[in-house]
Design a protein around this nucleic acid. Structure first.
Lengths: 205, 205, 205, 205
DNA sequence: GATGAATGAGTATTCATTCAT
DNA sequence: CATGAATGAATACTCATTCAT
């Protein structure tokens, strides 16, 4: 998780890992700094040498994750779309989703923290809207228009299509992986079917 | 909210209302019993006369809400389906959803509490699965089979169809009303389009 | 000390007494709330039920003391002066000082706290200037003018006379009782001589 | 301040200057070593390389100051007295005081630290009594006897005269410069009048 | 039934000090 | 010599809970 970050001492990585795990398991407010210290194998004071408050620790954990939730993939995939590597909208979505599922699986604790704390911290909300909001949305619009031009997708406003598709899938992944993770379906198959139904629903006939 | 409950003194109603609001706003762990007491206009000790612990207070708030999330409506609506009052699956979904949106709007704080605390309390998870799981699911299966028999819906396994449709819509409502409530779209229109796309996606042609 | 205050529970009196003693002995900043609690025989939390912060505790101790440092006596004594009960300025000063020495002796710890903390807390400085400044000074001016009119005192500006006499005596008392209390002179005799020298120094011949 | 001290590196001077300023401003106990380090522009550890504890740092600052409070001047001035350079006791006092006021003005922060911490540290009290007590007192006695022999001063015990005069002036200076420095009188004029009144009060007529 | 004073374990955070680099 | 990461004890303050009134 944090092993690939540069400039971090072993202790710092340990603190971040311990905090992430505990925040995910018990929630931010219910996790004490002394628990984090114990789990990370450091003195309590050491935490505050690196992060000036418990909240600062939370933000340090959460901010970079949020930037990586959607952003990077879209940038790559849009080129593939424009280069005709995806011949159908369905292919595009499937590629994006399977890639994101990988990310989600590798970052479940972190994502749980993000989801759980988002409503309670203004800074996080702002960040979320900034990072995901502008850049990504514009690229997705281009893609939708591209497939609309090719006659594959019904003539709804691109934003609506993005919202219908993206939010259905995204909310579904989040809910099942992060909020109710115990239930043990064959997620990928389920997702595949959602994609089929959705793409079928927006296909032009 | 709690005004319709029987056997509750004014003080008890005040405590429940204050606790719900504060839990929703700041989270369960970050809300102190003294804050609740102050907001409810009672002494700190009074809370513990009625609820033997802070957690007991949470459960008292959350449990009945969960029972009412889906349950009651489905029971009514299934009869309407069987009595041919809904001629299409789409009509059925639309009726259910519009009814549930009403409920969500009237219970946003309570639902925020449920969503936020669900992952952290085993008792709540159990309750959620019990209440929603068995009863409701079986009824929904019947409905899906009903419309499949009428040739309106593709021949997927009923459970899959339920999950695709229900989870898309439910997750969407929850996410937008409860987790990111600031964003201010025209929700009902959005939901309507999701329904169209979904029902279109599972329609037999 | 605090035994005569009304509306105070035994616990509160204990807290104030313990805090006063410890603040005087070790200084405000070097005294911990846990020490105060232990000395007062209460739980640490009890302190904060009555005083919302350590600083609030300090102010509660110090404020009433400051109001009683000079104020009340002057009011009484001025009437005696005007009623001719004191025939010389020396008599007046002697009466006032001996009365104030009594007060100082009974409030040494409290006064040490006042003196020590005055420079570090803006609120205290304001209070000190307000309480002592206006009212008292005006009355003293009247007295000086009274004796100047009787030809007993040289024709200096009353303010200067007050400052020379009052500050000499007051500073002397404070320094010897409060700042360096170990040295063990016969204070009252010393003070008596200071008075003689001072009154002799401002006498008209 | 410390620039004239020998054997001190730039870093050491910086530490002493920063500590003096902070101790004066906030008090010894309320000043942290990390603040001192930051203000001095050194690492936290550097302080402890030069001074084995925070208290050691305090003593290093305070001790030499105390030696210079009265000592050096008296030594010079006594010779002038014996050499008849001062013809009256008043001249002698005036010379001493004006010289000391200069010193006080140039060392206000350091003196504040001395005054504030004196009551709380046994070592400091001992030093104060040693440095000021013996040597200086004996010289002052000689001077008083000198002027008594010349018939200028009343026949009180020299110690009493010294205490009346010295403590009045000294306490006054300390109180006004160090404890309540905001009040903005014309100090030197005030002091001059105190001297006049005092010398007048002890003059033989 | 309601109160609110009292508790003591627990909280996030700061501190003086140490020591490997 | 100087650094600053690391420490763990201590700090002011909060908390859920109890209980005598």
């Amino acid at each position: 998780m944090f092993t690939d970050d540069q400039n971090l001492t072993e202790k710092q990585k340990g603190i971040l890992a311990a905090a992430t795990e505990l925040f995910a398991e018990k929630g931010y407010a219910a996790t004490s700094t002394s628990e984090i210290a114990k789990k990370a194998g450091v003195a309590e004071g050491t935490i505050f040498r690196h992060y000036k408050s418990k909240k600062d620790l939370l933000l340090t954990i959460v901010s970079p994750t949020m930037m990586r939730v959607i952003g990077p993939v879209v940038k790559k995939d849009i080129n593939k779309v424009l280069n005709q590597e995806f011949t159908t909208f369905e292919d595009f979505i499937r590629a994006m989703v399977s890639n994101r599922i990988e990310f989600v699986k590798n970052n479940i604790p972190m994502l749980r923290v993000v989801i759980q704390e988002l409503p309670f911290h203004e800074e996080l909300k702002k960040q979320a809207i900034e990072h995901i909001g502008n850049d990504v949305f514009e690229r997705l619009r281009e893609i939708v228009r591209h497939f609309q031009a090719k006659g594959q997708i019904i003539d709804m406003h691109p934003d609506t299509i993005i919202r219908v598709v993206a939010s259905s899938i995204f909310s579904y992944i989040i809910t099942s992986y992060v909020i109710l993770p115990e239930v043990d379906w064959d997620e990928e198959v389920e997702i595949e079917r959602i994609i089929q139904v959705l793409t079928n629903g927006i296909a032009k006939r």
